[in-house]
């Protein structure tokens, strides 16, 4: 028995060894390496100069960093709840029992696999205050015309709306959750006189809470690393504002500029470590909070 166990351990480790190597080389090591770099001044060439905690001290007196952090948290705080609600609404629609439902599912899902760098261009044209369809439709129904990208009050919400084109992916996961709910539960609730809204809040919603938690955690991670949309739409040069009034200067974009445009690899490493810590802390808070509302009992 011991021989088999030993052989299995050896074989198992051999099979997963590519992952172990990749995990250490591309994830663990870089994270610690950037911790080391965060205590140095480093342009990317020559040896890093140790400067102690200077980079971290600098964080506190860098107004643009605070702007970027504020923008990123603002974006994430909007994108996560809106994303969850939109995905659930799409999933409920995709779960309707109509014959051609597969067609609707496909149409709602496809935008989520399209490249965000192209969708960003489409969004610029679509939301243009003068020539875009969005504001044209607003004018037709009497809604105010909004400069979705050019107005700092709206630009972040505008990117949140753009992100909703990707809701079809999470919606399919919610759909799988919806279909796993035993139909008897709905039938007995219907006999008890519960209407569709009551059934949704009493049965459906509690039973998909594990998926909601998953979507929140994933959305949090994606929200904190928002980059491409802002870069494509608003970052025109290394020293320019990102969006009106820097309203689209996001955290990772600021890291990008410091590391790759200003050759401040040490400072960028400190920034990245702060992001790492904040992400972990937020994820832990969400998991803690989730204990009070996630239902695990029914399989």
């Amino acid at each position: 028995m011991g021989i088999i166990r030993g052989r299995n351990l050896r074989n198992g480790l051999l099979f997963v060894s590519p992952w172990i190597f990749g995990f250490i080389a591309f994830q663990v090591y870089p994270i610690f390496y950037s911790l080391r770099l965060s205590f140095t001044r480093y342009s990317g060439f020559g040896p890093p100069t140790p400067i102690g905690l200077d980079n971290f001290r600098r964080l506190f007196s860098d107004p643009l960093l605070w702007k970027a952090a504020y923008n990123t948290l603002y974006y994430t705080a909007l994108a996560v709840p809106i994303g969850v609600v939109v995905a659930i609404v799409l999933a409920l629609a995709m779960n309707q029992k109509v014959r051609e439902v597969a067609v609707y599912r496909a149409l709602l899902y496809v935008p989520s696999i399209l490249p965000i760098f192209a969708l960003s261009f489409v969004w610029v044209v679509f939301s243009n205050p003068r020539y875009g369809l969005l504001n044209h439709l607003s004018r037709l129904v009497g809604l105010p015309v909004i400069d979705w990208i050019g107005d700092p009050r709206w630009s972040k919400l505008s990117l949140v709306l753009l992100a909703q084109l990707g809701a079809g992916g999470p919606a399919l996961i919610f759909l799988a959750g919806l279909r796993a709910i035993p139909t008897e539960l709905f039938e007995s609730a219907e006999i008890d006189g519960a209407g569709p809204i009551r059934r949704f809040f009493r049965i459906t919603l509690p039973l998909i809470t594990p998926v909601i938690l998953y979507d929140i955690i994933l959305g949090l991670s994606l929200g904190l690393q928002v980059f491409t949309q802002a870069y494509v739409i608003a970052s025109t040069g290394p020293n320019t504002m990102v969006g009106p009034d820097n309203s689209l200067m996001f955290y990772v974009l600021y890291v990008y500029r410091n590391a790759f445009q200003f050759s401040q690899m040490g400072y960028a490493s400190a920034l990245v470590w702060v992001l790492f810590m904040v992400s972990l802390a937020l994820a832990l808070i969400v998991f803690r909070w989730a204990k009070s509302w996630v239902h695990y009992e029914i399989e």
Partner: peptide
Amino acid sequence: FIPFPITLVALF
């Protein structure tokens, strides 16, 4: 769930 940009600078 780890934001990928965390490794960005060091990997580069």
